[in-house]
Amino acid sequence: MAGLAESGGSSSAFAPARLWLMLPSWVLIGFFLLLPVLMMLIYSFLTKEFRGGVIWEFSLASYDKFFFDRGLFGDEPPRIEWTYLGIFWRSAWQAGLATLLCLLVGFPTAWFIATRPARSRAIWLFLVTVPYWVNLLIRTVSMKFMIRDNGPVNEWLMALGVLDAPITMINTNFAVQLGLFYSYLPFMVLPIYAAVERYNFALSEAAADLYASRWQTLRLVVLPVVKPGIVAGSILVFVPSLGAFLAPDLLGGAKNWMIGSLIEDQFKGAAGNWPFGAAVAMVLLSIVLIVLFLYARSQNRVSG
């Protein structure tokens, strides 16, 4: 372990070749991600052409369409357009609830794993992470299969006598939250686990000596210390949930659109409005970058 800190970054045996060593990453990611994002920014200010495509003419129409409603013929005084803001709001709400669900299940799980003997910890962690590597589409389809009207969950609940008749879970907001929860749960467990593993349990003992109950200790002593892990986990779940496509599309149905479906519809679906799709994607990217920026800034403040 000592070698980790010593050798990392300090050796410079390959310093003369560093330009060549970095070049492939710069070319690939610069050319096929950075440049495309800039191109998308430009496209969001272009004029749409009928059925896909764009006309190279500057226009604010896409952002105007996103924020303002000017009536059917575009000649009324602008009012706030709630359709797309509503989809963003619903996405944030769904992603937020999924994050909360992940936290409620993920925190006790992470705590439980971190307090196992070192040998069995690795096995528990492995068990929690394996499903993440199973194809997301397959996991989402499996969830759809589980919770459909005459699926196993309804059958089990009826067999147990909890339900008299099957309840509809598919195509509801709950199904979307469950799908997002299922997709990103390990992202919550891992950072909290890392934080709890570093936690000094002498603090809990001190609290207990001073007559704090277990739950008081958890709330007043443990939570403030492991908060960075909780925040990191929440961001890791919230950010991909916000732009998710598969869970809302397969589990939410047509009535429960999220941002991902709105964007997809502009390119692959019926809407066929590329500049508008680019604008919606820009808004999503901006929100995500702001969240990440605020997070990075709060991290810097913590570490001094």
């Binding site: 299940v105 993920g106 006790p108 799980t109 705590w111 439980f112 794993i113 307090t115 196992r116 003997p117 528990w124 068990l127 929690v128 499903p131 199973v134 397959i138 996991r139 389809v141 499996s142 969830m143 299969f145 589980m146 196993p152 929860f181 299922y182 749960l185 467990v189 349990f201 809990s204 003992e205 207990a208 277990r214 200790t217 958890l218």
Partner: peptide, 28 residues
């Protein structure tokens, strides 16, 4: 690990977590 680290209910939640993660895959 000292008993202070033990919270009743955390084991059932962990098991629930694993059931949620694995049940759909096993059923399929």
């Amino acid at each position: 690990m000292s008993p202070i680290a033990r919270y009743p209910g955390f084991l059932p939640v962990t098991i629930l977590c694993l059931v949620i993660l694995y049940a759909p895959l096993l059923v399929v």
